[in-house]
Design a binder for these strands. Sequence first.
DNA 1: AATTATTTTTAGTTTTGTCTAAATTTATTT
DNA 2: AAATAAATTTAGACAAAACTAAAAATAATT
Lengths: 215, 215
Amino acid sequence: MTISEENYLKVIYHVSLVAPKGVSTNAIAGMLDTKASSVTDMLKKLADKNLVSYQKYQGVTLTDEGLHKAKMIVRKHRLWEVFLVEKLQFSWDEVHEIAEELEHIQSEPLIDKLDAFLGFPAFDPHGDPIPNAKGIINKVEKELLSEANLNQMYTCVGVKDSSTEFLQYLDKQQIALGSTIKILEKEPFDETLLVEINGKKLTISNKIATNLYIR
Amino acid sequence: MTISEENYLKVIYHVSLVAPKGVSTNAIAGMLDTKASSVTDMLKKLADKNLVSYQKYQGVTLTDEGLHKAKMIVRKHRLWEVFLVEKLQFSWDEVHEIAEELEHIQSEPLIDKLDAFLGFPAFDPHGDPIPNAKGIINKVEKELLSEANLNQMYTCVGVKDSSTEFLQYLDKQQIALGSTIKILEKEPFDETLLVEINGKKLTISNKIATNLYIR
DNA sequence: AATTATTTTTAGTTTTGTCTAAATTTATTT
DNA sequence: AAATAAATTTAGACAAAACTAAAAATAATT
Ligand SMILES: [Mn+2]
Ligand SMILES: [Mn+2]
Ligand SMILES: [Mn+2]
Ligand SMILES: [Mn+2]
């Protein structure tokens, strides 16, 4: 498999988690920053290789084989992110780009030994679950801060957006995975929240609240 | 720079260490397992980018910029090999292939942090020196076992060939970097050696002796 | 239901890196 | 010095992965 094919599979996987019926050509093009016509070409190729099932104009779904391949790429991506943060002291906003490259290194023993070296972590630095060598994902229930109740104690367990800008905002506000959060007030007009994070009061926009996972 | 360009630069670098006047098209083709015509095409491209100086039929030499780029690729290759052996418990005959891929990951902070994580190693698992971030190589005098004197104590410090077959042969004979070697006899006809390695007597062919570095 | 808008596919190019076969240059023999 | 051999380059072709522009199919409006 080429790097390009792997990137398509991974994107189809991620989109299919929120759009289960079939992933549209445009959705893929948007995420990969390419043109729809390029996507169509690649979908044909992936279908020939039995990694997706594809019917003209109907979008694609991953086959069992494609799903497994996609999970293995995600596994590699997230394990490398753990390595970069835990062992090389990168901060959580610096690792995504590098992991985008490392996820394409082809060696099963490498990734299994890396997994062991890291102590078989269950989550990556952004709170996303790491599939095991068989592709099994340890799902944990979580919800967005925007959907949480008032005056209830939660723990921050993940981010939906993992862009540098958002992660650096969280750093600046000293919000990290494990921080405790309680919603004190919710402004009815724009859903701005007044929250208490690690004991400190803070005002948070709805955009922030829809990108923070809590439990 | 593409992976292909990087592989060419690295090969030109390695060949130029033993053929300093100019690296031939065929030598490059041989090492990269491609055709001479493909090499010619690439040499033109590298010359356009000022990474090699190239004149038709005269072979190539690296420019200062090309030399530095090549050293950085070698640096990455060897640092990743150290990581694989020291941290992930790979054996020295398993790491070359994987490092061939890892050497193309593009991130300066990554490689500098990896260097620090490994404790700034000076040599890779095969005894080859690791260029520092500026490209400076800590050269250590060493010679081939085939050129050593009789009845003198040496230490094994490196291998010339780092193929799986050769390294596994060394493992089988319990020869490792750091082993002490003394030549007891040399057969005049075919230069087979009777050596004492870590106290044990062993017969060694000339082919082995021309691939083991000692000091 | 017909029209318009949006999405998707097709057709035809481009770039990168490779190949084969033929031509050219350089090196080696006679 | 010619003739032959070897190395290298050129010319033309191909597959992968992208693009633009145009055509076709589907979805949304009137
Ligand atoms: Mn990627
Ligand atoms: Mn992540
Ligand atoms: Mn390589
Ligand atoms: Mn090595």
